[in-house]
Design a protein around this nucleic acid. Structure first.
Length: 206
DNA sequence: GCCAACGTTGGC
DNA sequence: GCCAACGTTGGC
């Protein structure tokens, strides 16, 4: 029997040449085949109702979770899902980003403490991210667990990152292609080693 | 609250 | 497979 064809949307979102890669030490290589080991994940620190349910989840909410760990449920975008499902591995570092708030920006560092598993909220009709088209024998959405590590010494606002991004496009600096602006609407984004190091260096600025 | 950018859906 | 309409994201 031929392999079952996957749905078109998933093919597109996955990219056609995405072969399953062995889970091995992540390394950034020059050129095409980049494997990431740093990430940025967006979450909303302010209350907002979605289907009558508050989706607020800021860094202070993560800190109060058991073991300061939360499952990253509710992602309903294929690209973001694929990063979580296929590429986010134990020990990977994550910038925790506050979005849709007065002062958007990076607030903290987290770590992946559980690799991808089925997002249970897709089957929960009361959940704001319920997906009635997803079947239990073939789940569509996956998540990882993320654990709080530490606050940044200094909040790094989106406005500063944007200034630097614009400047670096001219100068060829490390933030010239940062996904925060080149793939602005992705809620789970890869961060290169250079981007990570550069943003961390901003912590120590006056 | 506005709305630009962009992802998704569905008719053809 | 195109593309218009529609819905969502998220900065401002």
């Amino acid at each position: 029997m031929p392999p079952r064809k996957r749905k078109l949307d998933e093919m597109i979102a996955d990219g056609k040449k995405q072969k399953s890669k062995p889970a091995q030490p992540q390394k950034e290589t020059k050129g095409s085949n980049v494997e990431y080991c740093h990430w940025l994940m967006k979450s909303e620190p302010d209350s907002r109702l979605e289907k009558g349910i508050d989706v607020k989840f800021g860094i202070e909410d993560l800190k109060t979770c058991p073991d300061q760990t939360a499952c990253w449920d509710g992602v309903r975008n294929y690209q973001a899902r694929n990063f979580m499902r296929d590429q986010m591995k134990l020990g990977h570092k994550v910038f925790f980003y506050h979005s849709n708030t007065k002062e958007p920006g990076i607030v903290a560092i987290c770590e992946v403490v559980k690799e991808s598993y089925v997002d249970h909220t897709q089957f929960d009709s009361k959940d704001p991210h319920y997906d009635e088209t997803s079947k239990k024998d073939n789940p569509r959405w996956y998540m990882v667990d993320v654990k709080y590590k530490r606050m940044l010494k200094r909040f790094v606002p989106l406005s500063q990152l944007k200034q630097l991004h614009i400047k670096h496009k001219e100068t060829g600096g490390p933030l010239k292609n940062i996904a925060l602006f080149t793939k602005a609407r992705l809620s789970v984004q890869p961060v290169t080693q250079d981007e990570w190091d550069y943003i961390l260096s901003l912590e120590d600025e006056g």
